[in-house]
Amino acid sequence: MEKLIRCRDVGFDCEGVIKAKTETEVLNLASEHAKIVHGLQEITPEIITKIKSVIVDLPEGKTS
């Protein structure tokens, strides 16, 4: 089941949507997005916890 994170759900004013096949992949992509787009220098354990709390499982064939 594909994983999805909406950047807005993490607390940013951002329309970014990140999808990946696994939780690890989506967390890595979200961390890179936060660094590049939002200028975060460090992804703290608190940020990881917040990101994990908003991950959505997409049913097969669903795109958003």
Rank of each mutant, 00 (worst) to 15 (best):
M1E: 11
M1C: 12
E2S: 09
E2P: 08
K3C: 04
K3N: 04
L4G: 01
L4E: 06
L4R: 12
I5W: 06
R6F: 10
R6A: 10
C7Y: 01
D9T: 08
V10R: 09
G11K: 01
G11V: 00
F12L: 09
C14I: 03
V17E: 09
I18C: 03
I18W: 00
K19T: 12
K19V: 13
A20Y: 04
E23A: 13
E23N: 15
T24E: 15
V26Q: 03
V26F: 02
L27C: 09
A30C: 09
A30Q: 00
S31G: 15
S31M: 02
E32P: 05
E32C: 08
E32F: 11
H33T: 02
K35C: 01
K35M: 06
I36E: 12
V37E: 14
H38E: 05
H38C: 04
G39P: 10
G39M: 07
Q41N: 12
E42V: 13
I43D: 07
T44M: 04
P45C: 12
P45H: 09
E46Q: 10
I48C: 03
T49N: 14
S53L: 07
S53Q: 06
V54P: 01
I55W: 06
V56R: 14
D57P: 00
P59H: 11
E60K: 15
G61M: 08
G61E: 11
T63D: 14
T63Q: 13
S64A: 07
